[in-house]
Design a protein around this nucleic acid. Sequence first.
DNA 1: CGTATGACGAGCC
DNA 2: AGGCTCGCCATAC
Length: 124
Amino acid sequence: MTTTPPGSFHSIWEVVSCIPRGRVATYGQIARMAGLLNGARTVGWALQALPDGLKIRGRGVPWHRVINAQGRISLTDSGREMGGLRRQAVRLRREGIEVSSAGALDLEYYRWSGERVRCRGRRA
DNA sequence: CGTATGACGAGCC
DNA sequence: AGGCTCGCCATAC
């Protein structure tokens, strides 16, 4: 591509790529981990702008593991791409996460603490 | 450089 | 409990 990937977005993508399989994180949570106090909406944008096929640490970015603070999938079914909610739900279920048809899941149970895992090869 | 927008979130009513 | 409004942050125009 001729355009340079937005710096802030890249930080967000990195954090998202750290979410373990079978776990989920909220937009606000990701924002905070990326260094943004109240950047939940920015995270949403970063994911929307996520280049298809982008790989970090040799893996695709698990965008489907990001949900809202209500423990529900935020993708709308009515949009340019129909069935977005459904597609995310399928991906999550594929990892063993139980998701209702409405896109709701047990956040308390599947939430990624984000503490023990240090995948960002944090400068040390 | 000001305005509008969005896969959010917390507060209010 | 459900719905509406305002605040936040980084892009797009």
